[in-house]
Design a protein around this nucleic acid. Structure first.
Lengths: 340, 340
DNA sequence: TTGTATGCGTTATCAG
DNA sequence: CTGATAACGCATACAA
């Protein structure tokens, strides 16, 4: 900013016009003569004039930017979501400001306070696995900040939510395993405080019920940091493998958890015929090449990002209060990779 | 922003003070009595006052935000870099605004214009593989915008640059392959217009020279979009495999290229005893589990991000013109995964 | 110690 | 069609 000297005022001075005339000419107002318009536009181009977005924001009472909070950018699933968000935002002239919670509720709150200090027009958030106090977010929402939840939603806040069909995904994955003959399927899941975890558990459960296989409590473990901390995954798996009934397959509750499981199995040299990872890993280039073989529930992260951004922009641009709207992206795919 | 009504003016009115007193009290100025300070601070807290960052920016002539342009966020290497940048920026009260070029020079330019329309205090950029016209960037730099290049640098712009030790990485990788007995090592590289490509090529070459193995021109292919377009990788590999002297190992010039190679080999069912990917893939959780076996040059992406941000902040905060400074991160590691 | 006035760059309102 | 002026929210030089 220090470097950008050219303002509307400079142009006005250079051309012997008033700032308002210049401003109007630049915005192609109908009440400016073609001659002056041309004059101004050409000069503006020559001196590389760029309107100061900050001044515009102050005047317009909006920043043309949206905030995005996810647990971690360097997580393929969320970076795909951001990608989708950016593509939409970009086309509508919005800047995306991203922040990461690193699965810490405290850091999430800090980011929230920071982003909302009058510098974003709306928020897309996927809450951290650790978050259990939603009061601040709720207050923001009540005060009128447009919010869209993506993937990890908060149910009592009535606003747009974009989620994958977690139930279906988990159901299909579990069914796939059962059909393959596995009967002792372990589940490592995120905290059930997240609705996605509960939905996935329901899918897991219903597939069992349908096949008349009882669910064994001691094959289910919950962890708190979404797999970010490998030791948590390790501890959970240690528990599973200390049981008399050892699992013959594992359903990982998120991409990080799943890769953690793979690592564990490799480290411990445990042979497991097949695994299912319920993961949002869109980089199929890679998942396709993983060893041990892995069946993947691909969640349409990019599309979810696009959907969230569209919804948020609609919220931002229409002032009228919106009704609750939940968008469930249906295309959860099961990607099956044959054992080699 | 619509939602945040509370301003300094409101507080002043509520408390029967002037806006300047309130402003000063909030900034803990020494020329305000403890009593009023306390009064103001408590009231501010009560009404959830948050200073309007946009107004502050306009006044202070800085936005407390930095722009980051990379080819793609959903690329583990760059997301790690962003991660590093964010951690530093965050600690210094800066917001990070990211944009992606998708390896398109045109889109890069658009982002550049957008970000620099007076809304960022500095820029960290890793230029797209397609970029060959640096005039706009150069102009920005001349006009005083603090810029730091990371990974993909432009040599004629005299500013801080953060790069990995590409030469060493490629050298070690190639040497490793040669020691394993491979003699016809293919190289799929980014365009040599990028210095990283040239450095890597030099490492590749010197390892050959040292081992007295001639380099075969027809085992070297260049591509333009960093591996983003699989068909490019495919075409390059097709050429390599159409030669009479087929490669017995491949050095991939970037992470995307390398995963592209893996995909190709798998699709074509080509058995290759070992591969080396010169890739910036920090997610070793995954690379470790890839099949076919892969030896990886890990580039310290996170650390590079940190370094770039530190350098940029130093540029932003000290007004004095800085001397050119090049920081080469040395810890390029060779991660070797044994064949299974 | 506190208040008044001014300006940051832009746009909108109201005159001319 | 064009110009002067006020306002957005905040910070600061200058008064008091």
């Amino acid at each position: 900013m220090k470097f950008s000297a050219v303002t509307i005022k400079d142009i006005a001075r250079d051309l012997g016009l008033s700032t308002s005339t210049v401003s109007r000419a630049l915005r192609d107002s109908h009440e400016i003569s073609e001659a002056t318009k041309k004059l101004v536009l050409e000069h503006a181009q020559k001196v590389h004039f760029k309107p100061n977005r900050i001044a515009q924001s102050l005047k317009e009472k909006k920043s043309l930017s949206i905030g995005v909070i996810v647990c971690e950018i360097a997580n393929s699933y969320f970076s795909q979501i951001i990608n989708g968000i950016e593509s939409i935002a970009y086309n509508h002239g919005y800047t995306v400001i991203t922040a990461q919670s690193m699965e810490s509720a405290e850091r999430e709150l800090m980011n929230l306070e920071y982003l909302t200090s009058s510098s974003i027009d709306g928020l897309i958030i996927s809450v951290s696995t650790e978050t259990n106090n939603f009061s601040y977010l709720k207050k923001l929402h009540e005060r009128g900040l447009p919010i869209v939840f993506v993937d990890r939603v908060i149910e009592d806040i009535e606003t747009h939510k974009v989620i994958a069909d977690n139930y279906k995904g988990a159901y299909k994955a579990t069914k796939h395993l059962i059909e393959k003959g596995y009967k002792r399927i372990g589940l490592i899941s995120n905290n059930p405080s997240l609705s996605i975890s509960r939905e996935r558990f329901d899918g897991f459960k219903d597939a069992h019920i349908e096949a008349k296989i009882p669910i064994k409590e001691n094959l289910i473990e919950y962890i708190s940091h979404g797999g970010m901390i490998y030791e948590e995954v390790e501890a959970a798996l240690n528990k599973l493998y200390k049981n008399k009934v050892k699992p013959d397959a594992i359903l990982g509750g998120s991409d990080k958890i799943t890769t953690g499981c793979l690592r564990y199995l490799k480290n411990k040299k445990i042979k497991i015929p097949e695994q299912v990872g319920l993961i949002g890993f869109s980089n199929t280039d890679l998942t396709d090449l993983l060893y041990p073989p892995l069946t993947v529930i691909r969640q349409p992260a990019y599309e979810m990002g696009e959907a969230s951004a569209s919804l948020l922009l609609s919220l931002i641009e229409s002032k009228r209060p919106q009704t609750k709207f939940e968008k469930r992206i249906q295309s959860t795919e099961l990607i099956i990779r044959k054992s080699t």
